[in-house]
């Protein structure tokens, strides 16, 4: 039975794994449109990945096995999280009660190893990126968990698939303002975790201002392909959480659900592109205020939900 289910999930899984670079492409195209340019070809992120996979690797003599383990563990953690996060349908491959915590901590594990790999190079640039990454990661975590609290309260579940499924639809009817705040908080968390403007600038080439890119300065070849793909996958996963939280509905047939969610994700990617095109980056010291803002938003949502559910 489980075997059958697993086989049935294969096409869906393949689709989920193939999608992330396309989302990056949509962001790039949106930004190009705003800048009056054509932008790179639609499949450019895929070409980039293929190119990286075919390249050799150069390791600095300063690095140790931690540097080599970083990209692998990071991608493994994200893939593992992918089995727990609903992307197309409301169902997940391996979801269970309490998996929200595991998801958040898998992301944290990926972050820890990425950051350590950066520290392993003994470069001040990568230390800089590492410091920024953990600072903002730490600050986005309370907002993320408080959003989870709201979702858990509204749906009476600790399994992400249920927290974002049909029960949430009822919650939207019940405490719509709270849900709206949660979606806003999750959007900020998404922008932070995936290193987009106004937190980070994925397009910059300046080591001193980057967060994510500067951490992976020394990675090359397949290692870098893993990192690039993992970053795209992270966007897809957090984006899926956001999309499901914003537009929850019970599972329909997969052939309706899947295209619908893809369109929603594409819209989200376009939204991110629009944000990147219309805002300058925040000063790094201000990012913590933005994240505090996300925390306050989810806090307000929690208060609203408490008043409703504990009436």
């Amino acid at each position: 039975m489980t075997v059958l289910r697993a086989i049935g999930a294969v096409p869906e899984a393949v689709a989920v794994l193939a999608l992330p670079p396309m989302l990056l492409s949509i962001i790039a195209k949106t930004k190009a449109w705003f800048g009056g340019r054509d932008g790179p070809p639609w499949l450019q992120p895929y070409y980039d990945l293929m190119k990286l996979l075919r390249k050799g690797v150069v390791y600095s003599r300063t690095t140790t096995w931690v540097f080599r383990a970083g990209p692998i563990v990071n991608l493994a953690a994200l893939l593992c999280a992918a089995t727990l996060i609903p992307v197309f349908s409301d169902d997940t491959l391996l979801g269970f009660g309490g998996d929200v915590i595991l998801i958040a901590y898998l992301l944290a594990l990926g972050r820890m190893l990425t950051v350590l790999a950066a520290m392993d190079t003994g470069s001040s640039f990568e230390g800089m990126g590492a410091s920024r990454e953990v600072t903002f990661g730490t600050m986005s975590e309370p907002a993320l968990f408080l959003s989870f609290v709201v979702l858990a309260l509204a749906t009476k579940s600790l399994s992400l698939a249920e927290m974002l499924g049909a029960p949430l639809q009822a919650a939207w009817g019940d405490v719509a303002p709270a849900m709206l705040l949660v979606v806003a908080a999750l959007l900020i968390v998404l922008l932070t975790e995936t290193c987009r403007v106004p937190v980070d600038d994925p397009a910059t080439h300046l080591e001193l201002t980057m967060i994510h890119e500067v951490m992976v300065l020394d990675h090359s070849g397949p290692d870098f392909a893993y990192i690039t793909y993992a970053a795209a996958l992270k966007f897809l996963l957090l984006g899926s959480i956001l999309v499901h939280a914003a537009l929850p509905h019970a599972s329909w047939a997969l052939w309706i659900d899947a295209p619908l969610r893809v369109v929603e994700l594409a819209v989200l990617a376009m939204l991110v592109g629009v944000i990147e095109s219309s805002l300058a980056r925040l000063r790094l010291q201000r990012v913590s205020l933005l994240l505090a803002g996300a925390f306050v938003l989810s806090g307000l949502a929690a208060v609203l939900t408490f008043y409703r559910t504990h009436a």
């Binding site: 140790t64 350590l116 392993d120 190079t121 230390g127 600072t135 990661g137």
Partner: peptide
């Protein structure tokens, strides 16, 4: 959640500085 994040920062700091680089 905050403690988890801060502990991560702290041990990345320790491990990164003491053992790496």
């Amino acid at each position: 959640a905050l403690m988890g994040g801060l502990a991560l920062a702290c041990f990345v700091k320790v491990f990164g500085v003491v053992f790496l680089g």
